[in-house]
Design a protein around this nucleic acid. Sequence first.
DNA 1: ATAACCCATCGGATAATTCCGATGTATTTC
DNA 2: GAAATACATCGGAATTATCCGATGGGTTAT
Lengths: 109, 109
Amino acid sequence: METDAALSILTALAHPTRLATFRLLVQHEPDGLSTGQLVEASGLSQSTFSTHLAVLVKAGLVVPEKRGRQQIQRVSIDALRGLMLFLAKDCCEGRAELCEPLLAELACC
Amino acid sequence: METDAALSILTALAHPTRLATFRLLVQHEPDGLSTGQLVEASGLSQSTFSTHLAVLVKAGLVVPEKRGRQQIQRVSIDALRGLMLFLAKDCCEGRAELCEPLLAELACC
DNA sequence: ATAACCCATCGGATAATTCCGATGTATTTC
DNA sequence: GAAATACATCGGAATTATCCGATGGGTTAT
């Protein structure tokens, strides 16, 4: 993952509404949720939420799929993996002693 | 990790200068770098960089240590682990099939 | 003491983000 | 075809972020 892509993802997640939306969609994998359901969950106006969603989609964290006049939204686990790999990369390369505690806790599952 | 703490970390990393600073410090673990060295690496004015550094410190990603009239900066691997755990948590809990690809690639080291 | 050095904070200008209601574009239903 | 539904996009107002030079506080060297 390039630095610009990582920055897009970090920026997308660095907002309460967008982070909550992302987490909600993770919990609803793999079915996803419609944009309308996400609007309702956000408590914001439809137009405001639409711009937030666009940020998530542009960053590649959320992938929309047309279904009639609705739009089903799903998260991209690939994008999340890319970000985590990017963040861990610098300590993984050549300094496994730093990376070890990272992985130890992630092995929870 | 609480949502607010995760948001602070994400916001801190969602800026080119701050992300580059964080990565540079990871590469210089465990010795760290002085604030002056970081200022030079950033290419920004001293005052501007100081505010960026303060964001990283407030988020807990960077820990300063006084050394004479200098200030040595080091990253907190704990904070990074906390963020990664937070991001992975929602898919780890009860849906190991989502989490598996995350861990598979992180096992690079 | 005085000067030099390192870094944080202040004041202020510019740019970006965030929010909303209103309007536009498809799609479905009647 | 007309009305209704789902969502995106357009203006515009308010807030926040970003940047800088200048100043201040504390530490070391002369």
